[in-house]
Write a protein that binds this DNA or RNA. Structure first.
Length: 632
RNA sequence: GCCUCGGUAGCUCAAUGGUAGAGCAGUUGACUCUUAAUCAAUUGGUUUCCGGUUCAAGUCCGGACCGGGGCACCA
């Protein structure tokens, strides 16, 4: 063995490195790291240790500062500052970061050379004593170190974090490494679920687990995933809801129960939908929907207080809005130019106008939605005027399905738009300056002032479905004829299918124009019975059911029911539902009900959406560690 | 499934159709209290993939793949 490690290490090290690079030059950064690994092994050092037991975490070391106290910590190297004969590194574990100071004359020449060749992202265990640097940072003066795990790939980022959404979701570990905010959200999600469990345990609810694989998937109207059991030779479905098994447990005498588990629904993916999502369902015998309203309100405020320490939650709104706006302006200008040229040449050329229409349709649908939402938020921002102005032209000019409305009296279908080039042009000329001024004003505004504020302070608003509809669509909504309602809904800009029944027309207005505006918690009660066929009728108004929808942040967070315990009525509605033979009848469940189920209140809460609301995330993918993506 | 925006070095981003660049990371050298360390030098690219137009394509056109947003499906 050479007498001086330093002189041995370098030439041998680079000889190895060169060989490695010539062998495979796919990624030189990886090859360099592999060469360092080989060099360490050649020296008899195993950079993948089985165990290292630190005396404390990085945060504990910093928190319990006593000058000269001996400590050992372990973690990943996240930064290094090389000073020649001394060196600073940052070591980070889950608790946080601590700076370590290595000196050549303390460690010795050989170990110091090894130390300076450590890479970002390597795991090390260090021993040393606490001290404070000139600039006042608590640090560890190293007496020794052990390489615990060498990282063979470069870490993603130092300052900007990792931005590439695809890598963030597919390789979440990199996201967690690089973006502290992401880790914070995920840890808070864990805390939220912990507090939910605490809440129910304190109220003497029993936590249960029910089958994920079911022969007949029931409890919701959704497409299931199908799977196959080899030994039994039969098909199973992944559950779409927990409900039917929970009710069996009510029959069996478990009076207060809850489950937190995955549901699987075979649907498209979106900002609010992941194919597998976490659901909380809870049932309380001898309670009803009013009991459950109290439960939901108490649960969510308790969790918010414990995890966030506040009942007032801010959501940033600005980014998408500004980008959409800019996008729209650029697009509109190009459109205008193209149309003008075409219009000058030939009045009858329809293709360009039709194309323009289609472009307009897709570019603007998002902008219109955002404008609508912003104007609903009610909190006065300097943008209000500009939004109102721009809205006036947009609300008059809206796009639904295949119909494009230039002004209140004038509607043009996609096929007819060809004849209206001049109207289209003048609309653009009118809209452009408004958008421009909106953009200027939006640019001048601090992003925070556009934040959406959700106030969870009790007592939460309780409102009847019909009252909310009347508030938005006119006090005479339920006294005018069904045809008038249909026309009115259409005028408001709702999409009304030809086959829609009357209650569906009203509900289209509700889900498009009312639900998105319910930012602060609101229990919507007394839903029309047609809308929720499986629920029990309200004794005080038999046209409605004892159901609530708890809306927060413009989304339904939790539905709650007085559960149906009349086996005959339940069978009738289920048979009616199954009439389209889409889902088979769960005979076993119906038999269970016939044995008698106590009156009960029940709720479901989508945990992912609850986390979005509490943690200020606009996408469900940002509250799920590994969201579903298309396989590469 | 449909519409739309995007994919450039390990990371974050540039590049009127005309030699693919910067900062950081990496490597080398200097420096024993730095913390986005500093200073000097330097490596690194099948511009996601396939095809087309052109004397010339990261850029224009067509297609595929993946992602974001919107819609549809779905409470």
């Amino acid at each position: 063995m050479p007498a001086h490690f330093a002189s041995w290490f370098r030439p041998r090290f680079y000889a190895l490195m060169t060989v490695a690079i010539f062998m495979e030059d796919t990624n030189s950064l990886i090859e360099q790291r592999k060469a360092k690994l080989a060099a360490l092994r050649a020296k008899g050092i195993d950079p993948f240790q089985n165990k290292f037991t630190p005396t404390e975490t990085c945060a504990e070391a910093r928190g319990n500062y006593v000058e000269g106290r001996e400590v050992s910590v372990a973690g990943r190297i996240t930064a290094h500052r090389d000073m020649g004969k001394s060196m600073f590194i940052d070591v980070r574990d889950q608790s946080g970061r601590i700076q370590c100071y290595a000196q050549k004359n303390v460690l010795g020449d050989e170990p110091f050379v090894i130390f300076t060749h450590l890479d970002l992202a390597d795991f090390v265990g260090v021993k040393g004593t606490l001290f404070t640097t000139k600039t006042g940072e608590i640090s560890i003066k190293l007496s020794s170190f052990t390489i615990l795990a060498k990282s063979l790939r470069p870490p993603p980022a130092k300052w900007h974090g990792l931005e590439d959404t695809e890598i963030r979701y597919r390789q979440r570990y990199l996201d967690l490494m690089a973006n502290p905010d992401v880790k914070d959200v995920m840890l808070k999600r864990s805390a939220i679920i912990h507090e939910i469990r605490n809440f129910f345990h304190e109220r003497k609810y029993v936590e249960v687990e029910t089958p994920t694989m079911q022969g007949i998937p029931g409890g919701a109207a959704a497409q299931p995933f199908k799977t196959f059991h080899n030994a039994l030779g039969c098909e199973f479905y992944l559950r779409i809801a927990l409900e039917l098994y929970h009710k069996r447990l009510l029959v069996g005498g478990i009076d207060k129960l809850f489950e937190i588990g995955k549901n699987f629904r075979n649907e498209g993916l979106s900002r609010r939908h992941n194919p597998e999502f976490t659901m909380l369902e809870a049932y309380c015998a001898f309670g009803d929907y009013a009991t459950m309203m109290e439960t939901v309100e108490s649960l969510i405020t308790t969790v918010a207080k414990k995890v966030l320490g506040t009942l007032v939650i801010e959501h940033p709104m600005k980014i998408r809005f500004k980008r959409e706006l800019n996008n729209a302006i650029v697009k509109l200008k190009a459109l205008h130019q193209k149309l003008t040229e075409d219009f000058g040449k030939s009045l009858t050329n329809s293709d360009v106008t039709t194309e323009a229409y289609l472009n307009f349709n897709s570019v603007f649908s998002a902008s219109i939605r955002e404008l609508e939402l912003l104007s609903h938020l009610n909190n006065q921002t300097p943008l209000d005027q500009a939004i109102e102005q721009a809205k006036r032209s947009f609300v008059n000019c809206s796009v639904e399905g295949n119909t494009f409305r230039l002004s209140p009296g004038m509607e043009v279908s996609e096929k007819q738009v060809k004849g209206h080039t001049s109207e289209f042009l003048s609309f653009i000329e009118q809209a452009l300056p408004q958008l421009e001024s909106l953009k200027i004003e939006a640019g001048a505004i601090a992003p925070e002032s556009l934040n959406k504020i959700i106030d969870l302070t009790p007592n939460w608003r309780r409102a009847k479905y019909n009252d909310l509809v009347k508030e938005k669509a006119g006090a005479d909504w339920f006294t005018i004829s069904a045809d008038e309602r249909r026309q009115h809904a259409h005028d408001m800009g709702a999409e009304i299918g030809k086959e829609f029944e009357d209650f569906e027309v009203t509900n289209a207005v509700f889900s498009k124009f009312i639900e998105p505006t319910l930012i602060n918690p609101t229990f919507v009660t007394h839903l029309p019975k047609e809308l929720v066929p499986l629920a029990k009728l309200s004794p005080d108004d038999p046209t409605t059911v004892e159901v609530f929808e708890c809306c927060i942040n413009g989304q339904e967070i939790s539905p709650g029911y007085t559960e149906q315990n009349d086996p005959i009525a339940q069978r009738a509605t289920l048979e009616h539902q199954a009439g389209g033979e889409q889902q088979k009848l769960d005979e076993d469940f119906l038999v269970a009900l016939e044995h008698g189920m106590p009156p009960a209140g029940g709720i479901g809460i989508g945990i992912d959406r609850l986390c979005m609301m509490l943690l200020g995330q606009e996408s469900i993918r940002d509250v799920i560690l590994f969201p579903q993506l298309k396989p590469k």
